[in-house]
Computed example of a mutant assay.
Amino acid sequence: MTAGQDVAVPNPAERDHTAELERAAELIRAAKALLVCAGAGMGVDSGLPDFRGDEGFWRAYPPYARLGLRFVELADPEHFAGDPELAWGFYGHRLALYRGTEPHEGFRLLREWGDRVAGGIRVFTSNVDGQFQRAGFTGIAEVHGSIHHLQCADGCGDDIWPADEVAVPVDSDTMRARPPLPICPHCGALARPNILMFGDFTWVPRRSQRQLDALQEWRRTQRDLVVIEIGAGLAVPTVRRQAELASAANGALIRINPREPRVRHGRGISLPLGAREALTRLDAML
């Protein structure tokens, strides 16, 4: 090397992470049960938007950029009372999008890993898209609810019903729904998705709580549990906290996140990769 010649400094983002993947694969091989904790990043490889920041949301939904509307403003239950066509325009479009999206290969791999362990596999997710059900999973706890289920927007009761027969036409220019809008079968008022929204005091949590209770009961019976956290960011840390809590006893946490992979206090393995890439590479090592 001559004087003044630049020295190449390795970029951590360009590492192949083989050593971390091998450690993670070893954990999975030794597991007696698997818990998947999934955030919005899990669906990105299926083509779903993750709504990360205003710019990311507007790239996914250009009409809202023109209107100057942010995700946190649209994911607000007040719109169902004040402007139901706007509210159902957003959620009706998402309902159709999620119904038409096929889960990526990583979902299948996870399910196959769960079939190999004695305690099976369970899922804790903040996603409302139903991708895990579509991929054939059972034992799913949807902490923020599901777009595939509805409740009364007027709060006539705590009933929750499937949205299987609901189709909401949406004007692609204005992103407003065209009537008729979904209604409550009990009182005839407007219906809304059974999703926990921002500033939401009318969400009916009964279905999600039943799922969470079942997950907690399962966890109490499992030893050598390995937690695989995928695509869960810090902005809404519900999934990360659950993953850290569930792995607190043994530190058997695998965090898959291309943007925010850091594991606190070294209690786990960090994989700064996308969901499908990380799961595919792990599967090759099992």
Score class of each variant (00 low, 15 high):
residue 127 N to V: 01
residue 154 D to K: 13
residue 169 P to F: 12
residue 146 S to W: 02
residue 158 D to Y: 03
residue 117 V to S: 07
residue 126 S to V: 00
residue 178 R to K: 11
residue 119 G to D: 14
residue 159 D to P: 06
residue 122 R to A: 08
residue 157 G to V: 07
residue 159 D to I: 09
residue 157 G to R: 10
residue 133 Q to F: 01
residue 151 Q to D: 03
residue 173 D to Y: 11
residue 150 L to F: 09
residue 152 C to L: 09
residue 169 P to Y: 14
residue 119 G to C: 05
residue 130 G to S: 05
residue 153 A to Q: 12
residue 168 V to H: 11
residue 167 A to C: 14
residue 124 F to D: 12
residue 143 V to P: 05
residue 179 P to F: 10
residue 142 E to S: 01
residue 177 A to V: 01
residue 134 R to W: 09
residue 151 Q to Y: 06
residue 129 D to P: 02
residue 117 V to K: 11
residue 179 P to E: 09
residue 129 D to H: 08
residue 140 I to V: 14
residue 135 A to N: 08
residue 160 I to G: 00
residue 119 G to V: 08
residue 127 N to K: 02
residue 164 D to S: 08
residue 178 R to A: 15
residue 135 A to W: 11
residue 119 G to Y: 04
residue 176 R to W: 05
residue 148 H to G: 12
residue 141 A to W: 10
residue 126 S to L: 03
residue 149 H to E: 12
residue 148 H to V: 05
residue 118 A to T: 13
residue 135 A to C: 10
residue 123 V to T: 02
residue 175 M to D: 14
residue 172 S to L: 15
residue 176 R to E: 00
residue 142 E to F: 01
residue 155 G to K: 10
residue 173 D to F: 13
residue 117 V to R: 12
residue 138 T to H: 10
residue 144 H to N: 14
residue 139 G to W: 07
residue 167 A to W: 11
residue 155 G to R: 13
residue 144 H to L: 11
residue 126 S to Y: 02
residue 156 C to H: 09
residue 144 H to A: 12
residue 175 M to F: 04
residue 137 F to W: 06
residue 138 T to D: 11
residue 168 V to I: 15
residue 167 A to N: 13
residue 119 G to S: 07
residue 134 R to V: 07
residue 176 R to I: 02
residue 135 A to T: 09
